[in-house]
Every structure is written in C-alpha cells, then in structure tokens.
Nucleic acid binder design. Structure first.
Length: 509
RNA sequence: GCGGCAAUAGCUCAGUUGGUAGAGCGUCGGCUUCCCAAGCCGAAGGUCGCGGGUUCGAACCCCGUUUACCGCUCCA
C-alpha cells in the first residue's frame, strides 16, 4: 500500500507535469477539491465521453440522449427528496466524534423536561385519585409551571434560530442547556453547521424575495422531468432509455483523493424505463452490460469488482456498484440502481401532471420503473490513467514512463517526427501531418534526438510515432513506432490511413 | 469537521546555529545526430503557498490562514 501511495503521488505529479490535470485557480492557491483539465486531459476526457455515448446511444436503437440544463425548477429537488434529506443543522461532539442533528439534541432535552412534568402529573394522580383535576394541576403546580415555561422558552428560541438559520444561537442554546453527548458525556461541541449537499444561488434579480435555485446534485432528474417529452416526440416504446452526460455539483464535506471526489464533477447516466415487475431482470442485464463496457477499455478484469448494496437508498429496490481498484483501494466507479417508480411518481405528485405510459401490448397505463446506470466521467478518467501509468526499466538500464492508454482513447493518436531536421524530412513530415490531421489528433515534433521525442510521446500516451527518414525521401515509406512494444513497422505513406483505421479502433467494436 | 504530516523553479528535492536562494531532470534558442532519455553551446524560469508577528536581519522561529496527502467521520 505504501508503494501504491508513492505511485499515486507520482501519477498526480505526472498528470500535472504533462498537462492532464491542474488544481483549479492555482495562482490563487487553488480551490479545495476543484480541478481543471489541461490540454491532454480534455482530449482523454472527451474521448471517454464520446466512447460512452456511442456505446450507449448510437449502438442502441432504443436509447436516445438529451442535454438538460444544470438549473432546474426548485420543486424538482423537493420531489427527488434532496431538499428534505439534507437541510438539517448538524453538530459534532469533539470527544466521541459523533454527529447529531442540533434540533434533535434540543428536542431530546425538551422531551426530558416533558417527562418530568408527566411524572409530577402521575404522582399527583395517584395521590388524589378520582378527585384529581389534571387541567387545574398543570396550570397551578409550580414545578410543572416552571418546566412548562422552560419548554416554551426553549422551543420558541429553537424555532426562531432554525427559521433564521441562526446556527450560533442553536449552539449557544445547546451549551446553556448543558446538553451532553449521549456517547462521550461531554459538552465539547463544534459549531453548528448546515450540511446541505446542494449548492444554491439566486435566479433573476438578487433581491430579498429572489428565488433560491440549486445547482443539480445529479443529472438523473433532468431525464425524469423530460420523460414524457422524449417518449412522445421520439415515439419511444418501453423498454427504452434516455442518456445524458453533464456536470453535477455536490458540496461535499470531505472531498479528497485527487479527482476522485470533487465538488464539481461530470456524470454519464442512462435511465432505462421498463414495465413494473421487469425491473430486476433489466437490472441484471445492465449490470452485465456495463461490466463488459469497462472490460472493453482494456483494463484487466481483476481491477474490477461488484459491490451490492445491503442498505438501499430511499428510491431503490436493488443497487450495485462497479468498483475499481484505484491506487487508494477499491472504490465506486459506477452505480447501477433499480430506482423503481420513485422518481416519476414523485414528479407526478409534485407537478400534478400525469406521468404514465400506455403500453399497447398490455393495453394498460402505468408509471414506468427505472433502472439507472450512472458513471463518473472523472473517476473513469482516473481509472484509465492509473491503469495506464507505468514506470519501466528498459534492457539498456534506462527508465521509461509510459501511459498505456487504449489507442482509441489516447489524447494524441499520432506523432509525426522527421528523424533529423534537414534533407527535406521536416517538409515530408508536415505533408504527412496534413494527410492525417483531419482524422486524428496529431502532433509534429522535430526538437531533440528522436529517442527523446519517443519518450515525450510515451509520457502522454501517444500510441503511434511516424518517423520520416532517408528512405522516406527515396520511396515514400515511413516507420510506425508502437508505444507499447517500441517496435516499428515500415508502411507506405499512402497506406497510412488504412493502417490507422485498423489499429486505432475500440477493442470491442 | 477532528487528528497527523507537509508546502522552496514545470517536476523531484537541497538549503548549516536566522545573514537577500541552489541542483538534477524538464522547457526554450542553436549545434551535432539515420531510430529509443542522460553529446555540445546558450537562455529563460522562484518576492521560498498567503497574511501577520519576533528580530538589525526570516525560506528557516511564533501565530493565523489556504492547499494537498494520510487516518477517523460523512457519502441521498
């Protein structure tokens, strides 16, 4: 593991040094858990997205894509459960390291006071028997009154603090009441903080009554709210899918491990709509299908594993993760969830619009069930990069750092190199650039010894280097040097387009 | 968020008891070179993460802060 940690550090350095990933706003000391993709990073990332899109949309007649806006009507997040699930003020006990809802701690305290009152009432009831007037007792007994006043004061203050989001006063209240942690028994509390994972902003004029809107925390809802639009205009018949690639935003409390958990990230999602009752069959289908997709990236199977969820989210009736063996261990790369009809039904309720599908074969209408495949673009990028990064010791004792990125995903596909910069070789090389650059990302380089140029291309994962030599001038053939084996083929210039079509294509195509 | 550790050139790092910053690699401009880094000449690039404090003087000591990594915690 220590070895992996070192390797991971070198990978991060390499990603920066060769223009794949930069810390965001680096000249201002960076912004936590936000990263920018550099000149090679963006090529790799685009290639990943294009490949996914082809595999999901182009190769499936019953799957279509959309590109929904990042801003959505705030009611969307009410319906999806995101607003309610994450709007609670939390407080941590520093000794037990346990986290509590601040309002729950206070309410527990109130409950204790109510217990005291109830005990007083019970005692009095026993003592006075039938003559006991409960109403009169609780309005006159000094101990009851005292506690009741306390309760009223506390709940009034708590509710005010909650509505005004006055977290400082919530903490003050907890401290004044002497509330202790049930686990550690200490009063060593942190500040009260709100842990809504959604970023918010205002739309329109920034005035007091401006509408609060959120940056979407997942792309899925953009698909659900467009279900009927796509189904009707696309004449889609169940089962069918809607795919989307886009940015999502989560205000993570702890965001770490390079680009693994970022606050701004990109998802590739496909929501597959099926008949109720058939969702688990399709869940299994996509579980298999998606695993095959990962293997088509040329990464060994032992780098992947499934992790079935035992505790299911509120919307799911089956869920599994495809985990990848990152340098910091097996972590989630893709989630496959059977989301039932939770989302569509919720939107139906909140919007008041009927969201059903008429199934001509069954001759009935229903709210479709959904099987989701949701994969992180950035995590896929990191998986491919970490599997590709290799430090080699060559036979002559020299070292080579090479990114063995599958050719069809590599940022630069072909480098064109005149062996020396004279005898018409640069000119010939530039002609070859013109021949290939419309189909492939190519790079021309004439600086330094050719061996050094090969190493530079190895470092960014370029699968093929074309070298123009004396023989090229004589017979219009070039050498094609392979990144992985370092071996060379001699190929006629006229044959190059066909040669690369054969060599640079997806593994499973 | 808590705890630990760190931040000096694009990368990896050195920098003595506090006395105005160096190396290797890389990059750039040349030369040489007919096939796998480390040949030759030259050059650029750093107010030592940021802000305060102590001091005659701070990369170095102190405080704060930001960022990264590790552990814990969290993860609809």
């Amino acid at each position: 593991m220590a070895n992996n940690e070192e390797m991971f550090k070198r990978l991060i350095s390499h990603a920066k040094e060769y223009g794949f990933i930069f810390p965001s706003s680096e000249i201002y000391d960076g912004l936590a858990a936000v990263y920018d993709y550099g000149q090679y990073g963006v090529e790799l990332k685009n290639n990943i997205k294009n490949y996914w899109w082809k595999c999901m949309v182009q190769y499936h007649e019953n799957i279509v894509g959309i590109d929904a806006a990042i801003f959505m009507h705030p009611a969307t997040w009410k319906a999806s459960g995101h607003v309610d699930a994450f709007s609670d003020p939390m407080i941590d006990n520093k000794d037990s390291k346990k986290r509590y809802r601040a309002d729950v701690l206070i309410e527990d305290h109130i409950a204790k006071l109510e217990d005291k009152i109830n005990k007083e009432v019970e005692k009095a009831e026993k003592r006075f028997g039938d003559t006991f007037d409960k109403q009169q007792f609780i309005t006159t007994n000094p101990r009851v009154l005292e506690n009741q006043t306390k309760i009223n004061e506390i709940s009034k203050r708590m509710n005010e603090a909650l509505t005004q989001e006055n977290f400082a006063d919530l903490k003050a209240l907890i401290e004044e009441l002497g509330i202790v942690c049930p686990v550690s028994g200490s009063r060593n509390w942190t500040e009260v903080r709100q842990f809504n994972l959604m970023f918010s902003t205002q739309m329109g004029s920034v005035s007091a009554d401006a509408n609060l809107i959120y940056l979407r925390p997942e792309t899925a809802q953009g698909i659900f709210v467009n279900f009927l639009n796509v189904q009707k205009t696309g004449r889609m018949k169940i089962p069918f899918g809607i795919a989307q690639i886009g940015k999502a935003f989560r205000n993570e409390i702890v965001a770490r491990q390079f680009i693994f958990r970022m606050r701004e990230f990109e998802q590739m999602e496909m929501q597959f709509f099926v008949r109720p009752g058939e969702e688990l069959k399709w869940f299994e289908y996509w579980k298999e299908k998606r695993k095959k997709w990962h293997l088509s990236l040329g990464i060994p199977e032992n780098k992947y594993r499934y992790h079935d969820h035992e505790k299911l989210a509120h919307y799911a009736n089956a869920a599994t993760d495809i985990e990848f063996d990152f340098p910091f261990g097996f972590k989630e790369l893709e989630g496959i969830h059977s989301r039932t009809d939770f989302d569509l039904s919720a939107h139906q309720e909140h919007s008041g619009k009927k969201i059903t599908y008429f199934d001509p074969e069954l001759n009935e209408s229903y709210v479709p069930y959904v099987v989701e495949t949701s994969i992180g673009v950035d995590r896929t990028f990191l998986a491919i990069l970490s599997a590709a990064y290799q430090e080699e010791k060559l036979a002559d004792g020299s070292e080579r750092i090479v990114l063995r990125i599958p050719a069809f995903l590599a940022p630069v596909k072909i480098a064109v190199l005149p062996l020396v910069k004279k005898d018409g070789m640069p000119e010939k090389a530039l002609e070859i650039m013109d021949l290939l650059k419309y189909d492939y990302m190519c790079q021309y380089d004439e600086k330094d010894a050719v061996g050094r140029r090969y190493r530079r291309q190895d470092a960014i994962g370029t699968p093929y280097c074309i070298t123009v030599d004396n023989q090229t001038i004589e017979d219009n053939t070039v050498t094609v040097r392979h990144r992985d084996t370092m071996e060379q083929d001699r190929v006629a210039i006229a044959e190059l387009p066909a040669y690369f079509i054969k060599h640079i294509k997806p593994i499973n195509e």
